[in-house]
Structure formats: structure tokens, C-alpha cells
Simulated scan of single mutants.
Amino acid sequence: MNLTFYGNTCYIRNLTVDDAEEMVQLLVRNREYWAVYEPRHQDSYFTAMVQREKIRESIYQARENREYSFGIFEHESNKMIGHISIYGIKRLPFLSALVGYSIDEACVGKGIATEAVQLVVAFGFEQLHLHRIEAYVSPRNIGSIRVLEKSSFLKEGLLREFLYINGVWEDHFQYALLEGEF
């Protein structure tokens, strides 16, 4: 199943095992940059073998309608510049999911992450028929907070000591967008 959604600055496409090498390059380029807000990974995570397996698992999860993982690509070069997922999909009585994303440090501040979030949100509401999409973000991650707020997500609260990142329990804001607000 090929899912591709086009925006003005980027497009998102579901990942295939052929994307593993390019995913590794993206991960390696951003290893230190992303580690500020995400748990550090073992060296084996940054290998094509592990990324192929992660992509295979995401393909299985998509078939089961539980998760959809996309690469974020530049229009001109078709280069992978990030990744975004809609995951933790719950059916009635919830009809909800989570969105998570990371953008290449070299592409920050260009509106690409905002557009990718808007594309995946449209997919969630229009094709998956969700009622609610949530996102968790570190209070220190001002750029990601801006992405969510530009995408009409509303801050609903603070999740205290929510995520264990690099030896420290970190608080996170919970943001959400409802189908009727989309």
C-alpha cells in the first residue's frame, strides 16, 4: 500500500525497506541533535539491518491499522529530511492516536515539520476517521511546541515526569486536536 501526501514544502510517504539506508543517514546526521529530547539509542540502532526491521514492523502495524510511519521528503531532491508517525491508534470508544515527528536539523525553521504534521493529521481525520489526535512535547522544545500550535493543537496539560530520557524523568506537555477543530 503506497501512501503519499503532498504539501507545498515537502511530501510524506510511507516507508519501505528500501528506505533503510537513507533512514540511517538521517539518524546519524541528527544523532546528537535529536538526543536532546529523545532517549539515546545504542550504536546498533544506527544500522541498516535494525532500520529495515523497524520498517518491516511499521509495515505490519499499518496492515493492522495500528500505526503509519512516513518519511518526510524534500520536493526538489527527494531527500529524506525527517520522519513522522501516527501511532497508538485506538478504535471506539476512543478513535484516537498519537503523532510523533523529527526533522533534520538542517531543515528546522522552514515550516516543513508543520506541513508534515498537517498532512498526517489530515490523513488521520479524513482517512482513518479519528476523533482525536494527541502529541507529547518537552516544555523545553520550543520549536516543536510552535509546530503543534501552528497546526491548531491545543495544550491540555502537563504530564509530570512522563518520559525517561537520558537518565532523567522529563515532564511533557500534552497537546491534542479534535476532529471538529480540524
Rank of each mutant, 00 (worst) to 15 (best):
residue 151 S to W: 04
residue 152 S to I: 15
residue 152 S to C: 14
residue 152 S to K: 15
residue 152 S to T: 15
residue 152 S to A: 15
residue 153 F to S: 10
residue 153 F to H: 09
residue 153 F to N: 05
residue 154 L to E: 13
residue 154 L to K: 15
residue 154 L to Q: 15
residue 155 K to T: 01
residue 155 K to C: 06
residue 156 E to N: 06
residue 156 E to T: 01
residue 157 G to Q: 02
residue 158 L to D: 03
residue 158 L to N: 02
residue 158 L to M: 11
residue 158 L to I: 05
residue 159 L to R: 10
residue 159 L to I: 08
residue 159 L to V: 03
residue 159 L to P: 04
residue 160 R to W: 02
residue 160 R to N: 03
residue 160 R to S: 01
residue 161 E to Q: 14
residue 161 E to V: 03
residue 161 E to W: 08
residue 162 F to D: 15
residue 162 F to W: 09
residue 162 F to Q: 14
residue 163 L to V: 10
residue 163 L to G: 04
residue 163 L to S: 14
residue 164 Y to N: 11
residue 165 I to R: 03
residue 165 I to A: 09
residue 166 N to C: 10
residue 166 N to D: 12
residue 166 N to W: 05
residue 166 N to P: 05
residue 166 N to M: 05
residue 166 N to E: 06
residue 167 G to H: 12
residue 167 G to I: 07
residue 167 G to E: 06
residue 167 G to V: 01
residue 167 G to T: 00
residue 167 G to P: 05
residue 168 V to W: 11
residue 168 V to N: 11
residue 169 W to L: 04
residue 169 W to I: 07
residue 169 W to P: 04
residue 169 W to Y: 14
residue 170 E to G: 07
residue 170 E to P: 02
residue 171 D to P: 00
residue 171 D to F: 00
residue 171 D to L: 05
residue 172 H to L: 08
residue 172 H to S: 05
residue 174 Q to R: 11
residue 174 Q to P: 04
residue 175 Y to K: 00
residue 175 Y to I: 11
residue 175 Y to M: 06
residue 176 A to F: 02
residue 176 A to H: 00
residue 177 L to Q: 01
residue 178 L to I: 13
residue 178 L to C: 10
residue 178 L to Y: 04
residue 179 E to R: 12
residue 179 E to N: 12
residue 179 E to W: 05
residue 180 G to I: 03
residue 181 E to F: 12
residue 181 E to Q: 13
residue 181 E to G: 04
residue 181 E to N: 13
residue 182 F to I: 06
residue 182 F to S: 12
residue 182 F to L: 10
residue 182 F to R: 12
